[in-house]
């Protein structure tokens, strides 16, 4: 269990003069649920974008499964086993919900032009997609256009799509926001179940109850810098963390 799935090494990300992420380093063990928290604008989503290949870091490196993946494009990261959701949801609006999930299910076929000419709408892929929709609780919406779904269900769809990649590491960017209480419990249980299958999870979450409840360990960012790191209880009591949140007034225990 001590194997390392993700290592972020001295990552800096600048936009013009703005230091969105500054010299952040941490490691995540295989099978671990790691919480990534911090006030608004702390650089959490930016760090996700660096890890998943959307941005190339200004400096520093990212190691995924022990290999240096700094600057790999997003589709390569997906091939290597990285699944992610987006804070600002990005469904394929004109495709149906089930078709949305079928896109990542064909991952292996996109790598080869010849293989990509096989049919996408097959019985096996369809039933696999349906199974994922059942797991995330939106199977009854399968034939609806994804763009018509309310935000909460779009977040579940994003989770289903990310899971369809059968990732080794799952990045969840505020997947729980916009969900009702009972939905939060269902998805939290799903996340635990996913981890039991050996999938590591890095999650950004503003809802402290959820973040602290799910995470084995927590990393705290503030103003782009690593502020604290440790188990949920010690982080919660860390004066620097309390200070950062009190300053912004956003450490909420409600959803």
């Amino acid at each position: 269990m001590d194997e390392i799935i993700l290592e972020v090494r001295a990552v800096c990300m600048q936009f013009g003069g703005l230091h969105a992420v500054e010299n952040v380093s941490f490691v995540q063990r295989r099978g671990e649920i790691l919480g990534l928290i911090g006030p608004n604008g702390a650089g959490k989503t930016t760090l996700f974008n660096v890890i998943s290949g959307v941005y190339r870091p200004t400096s520093g490196s990212v190691l995924f499964k022990g290999r240096d993946t700094t600057g790999f494009p997003p589709h390569r990261m997906a091939e290597l086993g990285l699944g992610r959701t987006f804070q600002i949801v990005r469904p394929f609006p004109d495709l149906t919900v089930i078709e949305n999930v079928m896109v990542p299910l064909h991952l292996a076929r996109y790598r080869n032009i010849l293989a990509s000419f096989t049919s996408w709408n097959t019985k096996t892929i369809r039933s696999e997609a349906l199974r994922l929709l059942e797991e995330t609780g939106i199977a009854d919406l399968a034939e609806l256009r994804a763009g018509l779904l309310p935000l909460g269900n779009q977040r579940k769809l994003e989770l289903a799509r990310a899971l369809a990649l059968q990732p080794a590491l799952l990045l969840l960017d505020e997947t729980f926001s916009g969900l009702r209480h009972e939905e939060i419990d269902i998805i939290a249980n799903l996340v635990r179940k996913v981890r039991e299958k050996g999938i590591s999870i890095l999650l950004i979450e503003h809802n402290m109850k959820v973040a602290m409840g799910l995470s084995d360990r927590v990393v705290v960012l503030d103003h782009g810098r690593l502020l604290a790191e440790g188990d949920p209880e010690s982080v919660r009591r860390n004066p620097a963390v309390i200070e950062a949140y009190l300053g912004k007034g956003s450490m909420s225990y409600a959803s």
């Binding site: 997003p74 589709h75 987006f86 990005r90 609006p93 495709l95």
Partner: peptide, 11 residues
């Protein structure tokens, strides 16, 4: 439909 999402799904 959504290029960034497509890329994150291996496309």
């Amino acid at each position: 439909e959504e290029e960034t999402a497509a890329a994150s799904m291996g496309v």
